[in-house]
Nucleic acid binder design. Structure first.
Length: 674
RNA sequence: GGCGAGGUAGCUCAGCUGGUUAGAGCGACGGAUUCAUAAUCCGUAGGUCGCGGGUUCAAGUCCCGCUCUCGCUACCA
């Protein structure tokens, strides 16, 4: 019986562009799906945009458009990016759809009726002016712990303290600047604890990679927490049945989007949704996700499905994060690369191949080393694989009108070896061990090149041994065809060009077994251009420039602080200080202990969270600026008697982006800044 | 500081339940070849398997300690 398989990738949020990090997952999934389709299996790949939540609502408001319009636009952008990278969804839907509303309601109502939804009162910050409850990220204020200004409502980026938004000093709504008030509200909670034994069994039944199971052990042992699934309006999302003014939290209806996309597809194509998602389904259901959303997909999601009487996924496959040149993607280094920007410079097939070379079934992070990238692609794809056709197709076209031998010649068992290797390669694809699969394929390519070398068709041509020449070239082209078949899940565009070259209607896994004989091939055209390192440089340069880096992941532009008078400012005693000594602080990863000379104010000890950006040696003896009259703060590591001033980008993921202030030459320690 | 992952040739990585002189690809170097997108083929060099102990007849492979890197996390500008 043909396997019926449903595969998903995580839904990208409609608030940002697709970047190379996202693409690890979509390429990994797409390869898997294409592999199964190549095998003739009934495999479908569904995805959608994740569209709900406050950030979308606010961004739309800022742009002066409706959320629906925003979401529609992003849907188009995302789809265009995916198509350019040959990510071949069978359906790309949206969580803002009737299908999703119906299914989210069903999931909710069935859980509710089964007693899995409880009500709790929560206290939250509320903005009277905007008439809405403020998510933590939409409240800015002064950190109650360290006094840093303009911090988010949940955590201080300066001192890493975490707190409730209600504890924030001088809290202000990030949208309008008004002071929020505390207001209580009834929220709905999904009783995850009800599902503990079910989840323990489900997660340990071979559905997850061992690394994931280990991670889940941590969560099980610390106890499953119930999950707040409602938000008060205004909120861009679905209103909860019989709960006017309350909406599903975006993470509730996001995974339901997998089902909604399925339903939308099935309705369009006359298939059975139930055969995928209802109990008794014999279909296989797989989710590809990043390790960051493990909790949602291995606890909440199966529990919700189970509670609502749906079937649960067959397996969840997690992958690691992408690093570029060994480091986190960074805008300042130009390694935060958007899909669109990549497309402006490089062929998507390069990236698909390189990722395939690095992907395994494990949750390891994956490094995009750009130098390695160029070498690998050029050496393997152009030098080994494409070259096979390039060096033999010409003979066939010139001397034989493109015709292959009518009977497949003796090749010392090479073709059979290639066909046999397909079993192992298929198993590797299935197991998501793409890196091993690529190695196996390239080993075959080496064999093929050696064959050509040994039989030297160029010599045969000179000796007018036309019969042998046609044989050797026919063997080479047939070996090339098998290789392209094996690479087809990874390189669909090249596979298509190969079909054209060989005048084949299609390329299938089974089809590789029978060599091509007596058919003709088209004149050879380049199948892939080699990577020019200059293109990579240009890509990095473009990614570095802010106008091309379209990554609007910020929920809103940070509001400027309220206007103050000169008098207020004058209360801050800013002084020039010389760093006499900078030392690391045992037990604190971010801190440096600074011993400062403030001139007439004497020496001070100040702890500064700049360790990730500066080495102690680099700071010794340099001048900087400190707040001299800041209340001393007793820290775990000692008393901090002031604050060193440094600039850092808002909301940056780059922890090394810290820039200490420094006066121009001539300033001396103790000078007042005014 | 806590938790997790990891440190194997210049680079990217394999090395299963411990067992002959530690492997692959790429790169480098030397040679061959010229059909091919300076591609291909043959060969060479290059590794204290992070460091130090221990278990064992035998350890990259197990145990302990340390160190460094990465991720998450933590009362700490």
């Amino acid at each position: 019986m043909t396997r019926r398989i449903l595969v998903t990738s995580a839904l990208p949020y409609a608030n940002g562009s697709i970047h190379l990090g996202h693409l690890v997952e979509y390429i990994q999934t797409d390869i898997w799906v294409r592999f199964h389709k190549l095998q003739g299996r009934d495999c479908r790949y569904f995805c959608a945009d994740d569209t709900h939540g406050t950030p979308i609502m606010i961004r739309a408001r800022n742009e002066g458009i409706t959320p629906e319009t925003l979401v529609q636009r992003m849907h188009g952008e995302h789809l265009a990016d995916f198509q350019a990278f040959s990510i071949a969804f069978d359906n790309y839907h949206s969580t803002h759809s009737e299908e999703n509303r119906l299914l989210a309601e069903e999931v909710y109502c069935k859980n509710r009726d089964a007693g899995h939804i409880h009500t709790e009162t929560v206290h939250q910050a509320y903005c009277n002016k905007d008439a809405m409850f403020l998510p933590d990220r939409f409240i800015r204020g002064t950190c109650p712990s360290c006094g840093a200004v303009d911090q988010y409502g949940d955590a201080c980026e300066s001192c890493s303290a975490t707190y409730s938004p209600l504890d924030l000093k001088e809290a202000a709504c990030a949208l309008c600047g008004e002071k929020p008030v505390q207001r209580s509200s009834e929220h709905l909670f999904f009783q995850l604890a009800h599902f503990e034994s079910f989840l323990k069994e489900w997660t340990r039944s071979g559905t997850l990679q061992t690394e994931m199971v280990n991670k889940l052990e941590e969560w099980f042992s610390s106890g499953l927490k119930n999950w707040d699934i409602s938000r008060d309006g205004p909120y861009f999302g679905f209103e909860i049945p019989e709960q006017p003014g309350k909406y599903f939290y975006v993470w509730l209806d996001a995974p339901v989007g997998y089902m909604a996309s399925t339903l939308n597809y099935c309705q369009r194509t006359g298939r059975s949704f139930d055969a995928y998602w209802r109990p008794g389904s014999t279909a296989e259901v797989y989710h590809f996700i990043g390790k960051d959303i493990l909790y949602f997909h291995t606890l909440f999601w199966p529990a919700m499905l189970h509670g609502a009487g749906f079937r649960t996924p067959t397996a969840v496959f997690a992958h690691g994060f992408l690093t570029v040149n060994g480091q986190k993607m960074s805008k300042s280094r130009g390694t935060f690369i958007n899909a669109r920007n990549y497309l402006n410079h490089l062929d998507p097939e390069y990236l698909r191949y390189y990722y395939a070379c690095k992907l395994t079934a494990r949750v390891d992070d994956l490094d995009l080393n750009l130098e390695d990238f160029a070498q690998r692609v050029n050496a393997d794809l152009v030098g080994k694989v494409v070259n096979l056709a390039a060096r033999t197709a010409g003979f066939l076209s010139k001397q034989f009108q493109g015709q292959l031998c009518p009977v497949y010649p003796a090749d010392g068992g090479l073709h059979e070896t290639f066909v046999q290797a397909g079993e192992e390669i298929a198993a590797l694809y299935e197991a998501r061990e793409y890196s091993k699969a690529m190695r196996a394929i390239m080993a075959l390519a080496d064999l093929a090149n050696r064959y050509i070398e040994d039989h030297a068709p160029w010599s045969l041509a000179k000796q007018n041994k036309t019969f042998e020449l046609q044989e050797v070239c026919s063997v080479a082209i047939n070996l090339f065809r098998v290789l392209q078949t094996y690479l087809a899940p990874v390189l669909p565009v090249m596979a298509d060009k190969t079909r054209d070259l060989l005048n084949l209607p299609d390329l299938t896994w089974e089809g590789r077994r029978l060599p091509l004989c007596g058919t003709t091939i088209q004149p050879f055209k380049h199948l892939l251009v080699r990577v020019d390192p200059k293109q990579i440089e240009a890509l990095l340069a473009d990614s570095r420039s802010p106008d091309v880096t379209v990554a609007p992941t910020l929920p809103v532009a940070a509001p400027s602080s309220p206007t103050i008078t000169l008098d207020t400012f004058a209360q801050v005693d800013l002084r020039v200080a010389r760093i006499l000594l900078a030392e690391t602080v045992p037990g604190a990863d971010k801190l440096l202990k600074l011993t400062l000379d403030l001139g007439e104010l004497g020496q001070r000890t100040v702890f500064a969270g700049i360790r990730l950006a500066y080495t102690p040696e680099s700071l010794r003896d340099r001048l900087t600026v400190v707040v001299a009259n800041l209340a001393p703060r007793q820290m775990k590591f000692g008393l901090s008697e002031g604050m060193a001033l440094a600039a850092s980008p808002d909301n940056s993921h780059d922890k090394t982006a810290i820039f200490l202030l420094a006066p121009d030459a001539g300033a001396t320690p103790g000078m007042r800044i005014q």
